[in-house]
Design a protein around this nucleic acid. Structure first.
Lengths: 177, 177
DNA sequence: ACAGCCATGTAACTTGTTACATGATTTT
DNA sequence: AAAATCATGTAACAAGTTACATGGCTGT
């Protein structure tokens, strides 16, 4: 549902065309989460089908402009107003994988943890580097990019610390036996 | 892809039937991420279509047993061997929402942050409580549940700290103006 | 001339999700 | 007798993703 709502949010600001929506989305969220251009058009079709946007003639340059409808405005308002639900948090593939690895024989949990930590730490370094490159820029669009990077950094740090904990627990279990 | 692989991993341990796969999955991952029973059957159909599992007669009690195939074993091995990729990390709805809110007028970013933090902190308390209830149990299945809860706790803590950071940056931006 | 970006789309597909139907067995 | 759980499925759908086709325009 993120893409639907993101496009609606951008259209709430002002009417825009497909290709533009993609670049604007990426400008605001940084280069993480690239957005396939094909998906913009399919999503716009579905938003139009659902009466949340409508085509709005051209803009003098041949672009196909979409405009948000009142129903669409309602949905954007609801989206921004409602906190992201912790009711069914999105499945965490890493946690699932480790939980299964721990309860099934024939899986090298220690190796899994170490391989994962190597990947996560490398990602962390790349995020930190990107953040340094992007920093010291007070424009609001760049502030958003910085915060997205901060989010990735925080999440990845938490992941590394969790992997450390898993390893410690594993040793604790193997030790006394 | 998590569910496909999870079912395969459980079948790699030994042949099982649909309903059993669901309960085993939930036993191992805790009550977070409930698994709809319908999805187990559709996923099994698709795994069979792809030649990764096959029906294996009954077990004397009328259950429809599935057995993993060599191709399926390969996939499980690959899944456990390959770290969870940071190449295209799953979209973080909260980060996207805040990034858009910051770069668009007509959104009350401060309120959004506060509402979100309230939700996240409540979730954190619930996870911590569940963790306390589940703790002090050395059986491996419960160790897995504990670690899943730890993962949720770490992620949510990171989220709260990120929200704090966002708020601070926002004030910093509003202050000097 | 060629590469690359701008721009719009379509077709086919995947995973995941829900709602519904059906019946047996077990528990209260 | 009623409710809950066990057990298997189907139909319909949503959201996301990729691959492909098409054409104009721009810079080298």
């Amino acid at each position: 549902m993120s893409i639907r709502h993101s496009l609606l949010a951008l259209l709430q600001d002002r009417p825009r065309y497909g290709y533009q929506l993609r670049t604007e989305f990426q400008n605001r969220t940084g280069s993480s989460w690239p957005l396939n251009i094909g998906q913009v058009y399919t999503t716009l079709d579905r938003l139009e089908r659902d009466g949340l946007v409508q085509k709005d003639g051209a803009d003098g340059e041949g672009h196909i402009i979409y405009r948000i409808t009142p129903a669409g405005l309602d949905q954007v308002r609801d989206w921004f107003q409602a906190p992201v639900g912790r009711a069914n948090p999105p499945r965490n593939e890493l946690a699932i994988k480790l939980a299964l690895a721990l309860t099934l024989p024939a899986v090298d949990v220690g190796g899994l943890i170490q391989a994962q930590r190597a990947v996560s730490i490398r990602a962390l370094q790349e995020y930190t580097k990107s953040r340094r490159d992007a920093a010291a820029n007070p424009r609001p669009a760049d502030l958003a990019k910085l915060l997205v990077l901060d989010s990735l950094i925080f999440q990845t740090e938490a992941e590394v610390r969790w992997l450390d904990l898993c390893e410690a627990r594993l040793m604790q279990l193997a030790g006394p036996a």
